[in-house]
C-alpha cells in the first residue's frame, strides 16, 4: 500500500499552468464576446409551449421538444449502472449490510424520514409539469431515501431478488422506449406524442423514470460500497 504523492513534478506544473493560461485567455475572450442580443430558441419554445402538454418550459424542452436527449440520457444512467456493477466485487448490487449497524438513533431517523422523502418525491414528480421538478429531482429524493434505508440496515429486503433489481434499474428506460416505439406504431414519429395523450404519456414515462432513477442511485451507492467492505473483510479488519 503506497501513499499517492500530493503533487506532480515542477515541470509538469509549469506546463499545466501554461496550458491553463492559454485556455483561460481564449475562454475569457470568447465569453465576453457573446452577443447579448441573440434570443436563442426561447421565442420558439414559448410559441410551442401550448401544444407541448406541459406548462413548464424546461420540462417541455426536456420531455417533448428534446425528448430524444432525455431518452439517451436515461441510457447513459443505465449504462453507467451496468458499468459500476461490472466493477463491483459482488457484481449484483445486493447489499451485505455489514456496515449497517443497528444504531437506534439512525434507525429512528430513517423510519421517520423515509416516508416523508417518498412523499416529497411524489410531489416533485407531479410538480414537474408546471414548475421546476420532474423525474430526476423526484428520483434523486427517492434514491436518497433508499441510501438512508441502506445505511440504517433496512435495505436488504428491497433487494432480495437479483431480477427485481435488474428490473428496477431498467424499467424506466424500457418504458420510455416502449412509449417511443408505440408512438411510431400508432403512425407518428419517434417520441411524437399525440397532442391529446401527451400529458398522460409523459406522466407515465416520468413515473417509471422516477422509480428507475431511485433504484439506480441506490444501486450506484451500494455497488460501489461493497469492494471496500470486501477489502476490509479480507484484511481481517472491520466487523
Amino acid at each position: 500500500m503506497g501513499k499517492v504523492t500530493a503533487k506532480s513534478p515542477i515541470a509538469v506544473r509549469v506546463a499545466a499552468l501554461a496550458i491553463c493560461a492559454g485556455v483561460g485567455a481564449l475562454l475569457a475572450r470568447a465569453v465576453l464576446a457573446i452577443p447579448e442580443t441573440e434570443p436563442g430558441l426561447a421565442p420558439l419554445v414559448d410559441a410551442n409551449l401550448a401544444v407541448s402538454g406541459v406548462k413548464n418550459a424546461v420540462t417541455a424542452v426536456l420531455l417533448n421538444f428534446r425528448g430524444y436527449d432525455t431518452l439517451l440520457e436515461i441510457a447513459v444512467l443505465v449504462l453507467a449502472t451496468i458499468g459500476v456493477l461490472s466493477l463491483s466485487v459482488t457484481q449484483t448490487g445486493t447489499w451485505d449490510p455489514i456496515a449497517a449497524q443497528a444504531d437506534p438513533v439512525l434507525s429512528a431517523l430513517a423510519r421517520f424520514l423515509a416516508p416523508v422523502m417518498i412523499l416529497v418525491s411524489g410531489y416533485l414528480l407531479w410538480a414537474g409539469e408546471h414548475a421546476p421538478g420532474g423525474a430526476f429531482q423526484a428520483g434523486s429524493v427517492l434514491g436518497a431515501a433508499g441510501v438512508l434505508l441502506a445505511l440504517s440496515g433496512y435495505a436488504r429486503p428491497i433487494w432480495v431478488s437479483r431480477f427485481a433489481l435488474r428490473a428496477a434499474i431498467s424499467v424506466g428506460f424500457v418504458v420510455f422506449l416502449a412509449t417511443a416505439i408505440g408512438e411510431m406504431l400508432a403512425g407518428g414519429l419517434l417520441l411524437e406524442y399525440p397532442a391529446d395523450l401527451a400529458k398522460t404519456l409523459m406522466l407515465v414515462v416520468e413515473t417509471w423514470l422516477t422509480v428507475s432513477i431511485g433504484a439506480i442511485l441506490i444501486s450506484l451507492f451500494i455497488a460501489s460500497a461493497s469492494p471496500a467492505e470486501e477489502l476490509r473483510r479480507r484484511s481481517g479488519g472491520g466487523e
Partner: peptide, 9 residues
Amino acid sequence: VGGWGGPLG
C-alpha cells in the same frame, strides 16, 4: 424526432 423538426427539435 418528436415531429418538431430543427431547430426546436
